[in-house]
Amino acid sequence: MESLDQIDRDILALLQADGRVTGAEVGRRVGLSQPAASARIQRLEKNGVITGYRAAVNPAALGLNIRAVIRLRTTHAQLSRALDFAGQTPEVTSTLRVTGEDCLIFDVHCPQAGRLEEVVDAFARYGPVTTSLVLRAYPPKPLTDATSPTTDP
């Protein structure tokens, strides 16, 4: 894929903030016609830069009032079993394989502390776990911000 220009980056930022924004509105905001904006969006999709559109759901509205991060240190022999378990556990909303002392990091949403305890204990079958409660989550930054040059204040 050729490098992204500023208009592509602006389009990505708009779509990450609101995946339901229309092609006409994207065009208006970035200074393109609707067909030109739609063509750029389609190119970004075709080239795998945009991989999908999703609804952001408030876990608390579903009764999932406890959020935790579970870090697992496991062995190579247990890794696939731990990943399989995570895939079958509805409370696990994301999984990261990482370097360092820990092997996997799980984002977990539970309705109450007792269920979190069960999930933590189940992961402990695969190795030592460290659990941290999430006090607050901040909105993610658009990925285009990470690729833009920044200056120190």
Rank of each mutant, 00 (worst) to 15 (best):
Y53V: 06
R67D: 06
T74A: 05
I70Y: 02
D8V: 11
L4I: 08
A36Y: 08
V21E: 15
G23W: 08
T95I: 11
F85G: 04
R136T: 15
P139D: 13
A124K: 11
L83G: 10
V98A: 10
P111N: 09
G27F: 03
V134W: 15
A13E: 09
S148K: 00
V129C: 08
D152E: 07
D10E: 12
L32I: 00
R29V: 04
K141M: 00
Q78S: 11
A77M: 11
R28I: 08
A36M: 12
G63P: 02
G27K: 02
Y138D: 11
A68F: 01
P139K: 04
G52A: 00
A36P: 09
A55W: 10
H109T: 06
L135G: 06
S80K: 14
P128W: 14
A124G: 10
D152Y: 02
T150C: 04
V30T: 03
E2T: 13
R54V: 14
A61K: 04
L72E: 01
A61Q: 10
T75E: 03
L72Y: 01
V26P: 01
N47H: 04
E2L: 11
C103M: 13
L96K: 11
L44V: 02
T147D: 04
R73P: 06
G114M: 09
A113V: 09
D84K: 15
S132R: 15
Y126D: 02
E45A: 00
A60E: 04
D102R: 09
P149D: 03
E25P: 03
L44Y: 00
L143K: 14
R54Y: 14
G23C: 06
E101V: 04
T93N: 12
E25Q: 09
G100Y: 15
V108S: 00
H109R: 07
A124T: 12
G23I: 10
D102W: 13
D152W: 10
T144F: 05
P90I: 14
S94E: 14
Y126A: 00
E25F: 00
